[in-house]
C-alpha cells in the first residue's frame, strides 16, 4: 500500500458517506407523492384530505372512511349492500370508491401523474 492508495480509500469512503447522507438530507426517499383524497357527496365536494396523514373521516352520518399507510378504505356504511366497503383499498391516483346509495364518492387525486394522457382528442 502506498500513500496514494490511502488517498483513494479515503476518497471512496467520503464518496460513500456523501451518497448516503445527501439523498436522505434532501428527503428523496420515503417521500410519498402529493396525493389527496377527495370526498364528494351528491356531486358536491365534501372535503380534501392528504393521504400521507393517517385519519378516520366521518362523512355525514352515512359513511366512515379511513386513511392509513397512504391507503383509503371505507370502513362503515349504513347502506344495506355495503359494496363500498369491499372496494378498497384505494391508493393510486384515479382510483375511486363509490357508495351509490349514499351518493358518496372517494377519489384519489394528485398534482402530477406520469401515465396520464397529455391531451385528449375530441
Amino acid at each position: 500500500m502506498k500513500k496514494r492508495d490511502f488517498v483513494l480509500v479515503g476518497a471512496v469512503l467520503a464518496a460513500a458517506l456523501l451518497c448516503w447522507l445527501v439523498p436522505r438530507a434532501l428527503g428523496i426517499f420515503g417521500r410519498t407523492q402529493d396525493t389527496e383524497l377527495v370526498i364528494t357527496v351528491d356531486g358536491e365536494e365534501y372535503g380534501r384530505y392528504p393521504l400521507s396523514e393517517d385519519q378516520v373521516i366521518k362523512i355525514n352520518e352515512t359513511n366512515v372512511c379511513q386513511i392509513s399507510n397512504g391507503e383509503v378504505n371505507m370502513t362503515e356504511a349504513d347502506c344495506p349492500d355495503k359494496l363500498c366497503m369491499h372496494q378498497g383499498p384505494a391508493r393510486e391516483q384515479g382510483q375511486t370508491i363509490v357508495c351509490l346509495p349514499n351518493k358518496v364518492v372517494l377519489e384519489i387525486t394528485g398534482e402530477t401523474q406520469e401515465n396520464q394522457a397529455d391531451s385528449v382528442a375530441q
Partner: peptide
C-alpha cells in the same frame, strides 16, 4: 433512478473491501 441512489453507497463500500 432511486435504485442507483439508494444502493450506491453500499456498493462503494463493498467494492472498497473486496477490491482491497
Amino acid at each position: 433512478k432511486n435504485l442507483l441512489l439508494y444502493y450506491f453507497p453500499v456498493l462503494l463500500i463493498a467494492g472498497l473491501i473486496t477490491g482491497f
